[in-house]
Design a protein around this nucleic acid. Sequence first.
DNA 1: CACGAGACCTGTTCGC
DNA 2: TGCGAACAGGTCTCGT
Length: 273
Amino acid sequence: MPELPEVETIVNNLRLGAAGAPALPGKVITGAQVLWQRTVAEPDAPVFEQQITGQAVRDIHRRGKYLVFELSHDVLLVHLRMSGDLLVGSGEHAVTAHTRLLLRFKNGLHLAFQDARKFGRVWLTCDPLSVLGRLGPEPFDEQLTAELFYTRLQGSRRQVKPLLLDQSFLAGLGNIYTDEALHLAKIHPQANAHSLELRQAERLLESIRCVLREGIRRQGASIDWVYRGGDFQNYFRVYRRSGSPCPACGTSVVRIVVSQRGTHICPRCQAVN
DNA sequence: CACGAGACCTGTTCGC
DNA sequence: TGCGAACAGGTCTCGT
């Protein structure tokens, strides 16, 4: 479920503390409990529980859609996939119906990995690149110039939407922000990547950065039954707005399917090439 | 190489 | 009201 802005928001809250919860950096993990074995991709759950206990959280940051916890000896990587969330709490009732992993700290403080659909995964490793190594550039990386982005688009024969969703092409976009960015750039999701001109590539990169910045500023989107405070869902241009008017031209937004993902476009602004 | 289908999972919403 | 189908913010693997 979460894309770059939602992950960024969660990281910021865990790093700095939010809503009465303390910041995690500096705290020592006093115990761990794996409630759904497959949530832990590596190592085996019993080893994970034993190995993470006693390690302090040094810092937390984001790479693509991964949360990266720098611990005393290892790195904890968390990918929330479709329905995952990380919640800090204290006292009783730490484990609920959807808790898949629980990390305990002193004084009853805990970090719960909640994940209704069980797609989320965590890794405890001393070699984070073994997991993160294939990720493409960060969208806000200054090294990623419009010219370079254009060249990378030229290098693919794929449709532009599935290419943007490919984390090895660009790290962090998901279904929402891809639809929003393509609409803002006025590019059809099924346009061939290599057919885009330099000006379109420039506009697409700008649009990607624009919608991601907007998402971060609004603390992400909260849709379906997952709510974490963000309100970007109230500002979607096209995502899940079929039948509503395009904010740019008033034409009805249409839902199509592109590489098996629901896709929302304005048929007028995003004409097929 | 690129694409489609299926798998992994559970919960909500939609249509009859 | 009830029930099955469709759908959901992601990614991996397999077959063509």
